[in-house]
């Protein structure tokens, strides 16, 4: 996989050819230095602002590090794996982890299904319905998560909400049962995150040459067939990033659960990992325990991403 493409992998690819006017020579030299040149700004920004803090995060997770240490009131002490031991020793952590994985999985699948189908739908309609759907979706996306969650809670309120009246549900309480509360939050999460998938995939479809689609349509292929055998393969790089991003976001869902289930539901039945981390650690400034949770989340998500990419590669998709 790390083989050079075509001519491009000469060791030390001669500085001379870099300035030479011959197109082929230039391509050769490019593959050694140019990519790094192009990458330089991104690497500077990401190295400084993401890699370094993540490194600090790992470091903090091995120390006793609370607000008192941060502001210099008490000395930092090395704890080894103490924070991790505390975390893994908590039975609630494992329950929350399981709930998080299942809930995030459901959110990812629903969001992708809704987002992709609506993206395809957008390519089938004329300008007015398209703009209407796009604007509605953008509005949902643009609404601050904290407000979106509040509004959804209002809509489904047993006493004051219009939805129960429209559906004739009386004063059924959505947030009391564990599953119905998760379901309500899932609806809100899908509502505010499908637009991202839809717009991205739509932009991707638009980048597919029109002739390819027309040819497929002329062949009489069904919508599903066109998606399966024409669009999905061409969109794969975009679908990959959309999927990975959705996994990351939904695994880290916070505001929706926090606001809609009032901090984790009846007796904590709707806790997810990020809310758990907030309540256990960040809200009371126990950064070291919080960082340990962060490291665990990082490792889980990294593993999921790597497995996913490996599966893709097995299917012949090159990175």
């Amino acid at each position: 996989m790390r083989q050079g493409r075509g001519l491009s992998r000469p060791r030390g690819g001669s500085r001379k050819s870099n300035t030479a006017p011959r197109p082929q020579g230039r391509r050769r030299g490019r593959s050694q230095r140019t990519p790094w040149l192009y990458l330089a700004p991104a690497l500077v920004v990401l190295g400084g602002l993401l890699v370094y803090p993540v490194y600090q995060l790992g470091l903090i997770s091995f120390f006793q590090y609370t607000q008192a240490q941060v502001s210099g009131g008490e000395p930092t002490t090395f704890e080894g794996f103490g924070n991790y031991a505390e975390l893994f020793g908590d039975r609630q952590f494992w329950e929350v982890l399981l709930a998080t994985v299942l809930f995030a999985g459901a959110c990812v699948v629903s969001t992708l299904a809704v987002g992709c189908s609506l993206a395809v739908l957008l390519t089938r309609v004329r300008a007015v319905p398209r703009l209407a759907l796009m604007l509605a979706a953008l509005g949902a996306w643009a609404t601050p998560a904290i407000t979106g969650s509040t509004v959804w809670l209002f809509l489904f309120d047993p006493d004051f909400g219009p939805v129960n009246r429209m559906l004739g549900l009386g004063d059924y309480s959505w947030t009391y049962g564990r599953l119905s509360a998760f379901f309500l939050v899932l609806l809100e999460v899908v509502w505010c995150s499908f637009p991202f998938v839809m717009v991205t995939v739509y932009a991707g479809i638009k980048a597919v040459p029109a002739e390819v689609l027309e040819a497929a349509a002329l062949d009489g292929a069904s919508q599903w067939r066109i998606w399966r055998s024409v669009l999905a393969p061409m969109l794969r790089p975009i679908l990959v990033v959309v999927t990975i991003q959705s996994v990351i976001w939904d695994f880290k869902v916070f505001t929706q659960i926090y606001v809609m289930t009032n901090g984790g539901g009846i007796a904590g039945q709707n806790l997810v990992l990020n809310v758990y981390a907030y309540q256990k650690a960040f809200a009371s400034s126990q950064y070291s325990l919080g960082s340990a949770i962060g490291v665990v989340m990082l490792l889980i998500l990294l593993a999921v991403t790597l497995v996913y990419l490996r599966l893709l590669r097995r299917q012949g998709e090159e990175m």
Partner: peptide, 20 residues
């Protein structure tokens, strides 16, 4: 590199605010 780029998004942002 591509995967490293994503790493920082995988942790809760609250955890990064102190180093940042």
């Amino acid at each position: 590199l591509l995967i490293m780029f994503l790493v920082a998004q995988m942790v809760p942002v609250e955890a990064l605010t102190i180093p940042l």
